[in-house]
Design a protein around this nucleic acid. Structure first.
Lengths: 180, 180, 180, 180
DNA sequence: TATGAATGAGAATTCATTCAT
DNA sequence: AATGAATGAATTCTCATTCAT
């Protein structure tokens, strides 16, 4: 029964992601439950309210991203390529949707902390890449992270679309001299 | 009386933009009317339903943007700087908000056509800039427009923030040679 | 239209009192609205939530009671009879119901103050009656008020039922000597 | 096993009384089960539905009261003091709560009969006390019982609070002559 | 037999829209 | 033409009860 419950929990999250993607972040709880093949009551047993469900999705995505960042560091990928790899990873995740969902309410402490942690990891990455010379130095690490986030949180973002290419490329080089 | 009506229409749109900005795209019709100093009935006299109001805002913004593009062309601004100027213009407009509003429902014909027209103007611009050599050639004009849109439709976008700088900068030059 | 709205407000309160009496304090808002011949929306326009409706009823009853106490004082009814008159007045009001309703949530400031004021008036009354010798002196004024409230807040309370008679009678005389 | 079951049954009833007292008669079945250290399923094994649980509590209290009345009669307590003793007994029981619970639904036959029996016992008591002259005769035995019930079914009722004193005192003596 | 997960009917509340004044 | 009252469908959430394990 524990296994069953876990399965249902997964189903709910999947159904929610599906419906949010299809119908926007306003998808009704009832519909999510139905899409998961469950009654509303079951949904509410797993997530005490709408926020809790959204939160689970947001926090889950952040945790996965954190794991990914750590894995890349552990693999000793050359610093200059880590950002590319992360963009590629994120392109496979529904970050645009998750961002929209997360903006609905103020972030609770847990999410804020996790976000800060992930941002910290990414800033470190940016800082070290700047040290190595693989990311230009006139952009603050914090801004690099913001750029990364913009690149990655777009509906239909792909790792090799124009924005990703221009930004990753742009980060790698010193700024062009301003045209006169 | 006609003047009165026009004034009311303006007030409603202003109030709507204000409330949408403040409270998100979910702001209630009643509140918008109140913020405009009118009753709901009057709001509905001007806009038969919520969509019509949103539509007016979206279409208005596109028309303004079209006018701006044309004005810049008429002014004979050096092609290489037009994009910068447009980004600067857009940074002063609530495009992030408008994009969010516009995504709520499928775009009706009028908006689709206007959007296509503006996109066309911007693509022409990109194409000519590529001809002049002020925009790199390995990015399709359509993609340049998409880039532009991403840069410009962010909450709090500024003409000189990191994304704007990196993208405008990146567009100007040929791609960096891939690191070996 | 203002007249209409006022009428509707009255109807809602009447319907609510009726349904609360019939079905207990759990009567559904939808049913109350229907019983008033209105849609739920209208009910909610008049009372922003369930509490507000209950509060209106409770506060209204307290205000009426305060008016009654004052009227009796103004009429210069002999002090010894005022309590009887008040019991008679209250017997005609649904105080048992109102008490049950009011106990559902903590009293907000307005009601607490009004309650305190009414209690104060009644205590004064008791104190003066004790001064005159028409109410026995070994019961604190506050307790007299509590007694009054118990007599009056019973379902089906009547001004001449056994409890009312025994209590009013008991209040009038000095305590019986305890049987040995 | 039977002993276990009995213990669980007791625990449920205790938990229910506790929660009803704490949170009002709306306490949820799930919470009651938890408070009893059991799962809902077990609660429902003992009591087929909410009513059955409430009924058990109400009937139990009536049975205890009946036992108390009989015990007092068997002890040959002077009639004039039996009412006092009963009030004292009841003050220790949650009769106010039980009354509120019992009013939620119509009483089923079993409870009605038991109630009638207890009322009968109390009426007999009243009648005999009137015969002895320890209770005044102008109040019908049925009304005496009603009085008793009102005294005893108040939240926080105590055997020596104002109402109890005034009523018990009032019952003992002939009515005061009406003031002229 | 005990457990707690699942169910769904029901309740409160919101808000776009209509309509009487 | 302007107003704001009325409407009711849609939504979130709760809780008694059932049932699989």
């Amino acid at each position: 029964m524990r296994a069953d419950a876990r399965r249902n929990r997964e189903r709910i999250i999947d159904a929610a992601l599906g419906l949010f993607a299809e119908r926007g972040p306003g998808a009704a709880m009832e519909e999510i439950a139905r899409a998961a093949g469950l009654g509303v009551g079951t949904l509410y047993r797993h997530f005490p309210d709408r926020r809790a469900l959204v939160e689970e999705i947001a926090v889950g995505a952040l945790q996965d991203l954190r794991a990914e960042v750590r894995a890349l560091e552990a693999l000793d990928v050359p610093r200059g390529q880590v950002l590319e790899r992360l963009v590629a990873y994120c392109a496979g995740q529904p970050f645009a949707l998750i961002k929209a969902l997360a903006e609905e309410d103020a972030a609770p402490a847990e999410r804020r902390e996790l976000q800060a942690e992930v941002d910290g990891l990414l800033e470190d990455l940016a800082r070290r890449a700047q040290g190595e010379g693989t990311v230009r130095r006139d952009i603050a690490p914090r801004e690099v992270v913001e750029l990364f986030s913009t690149v990655v949180c777009r509906p239909g973002a792909r790792a090799d679309d124009a924005l990703a290419r221009v930004v990753l490329d742009g980060l790698r080089r010193d700024p062009a001299p301003r045209s006169p």
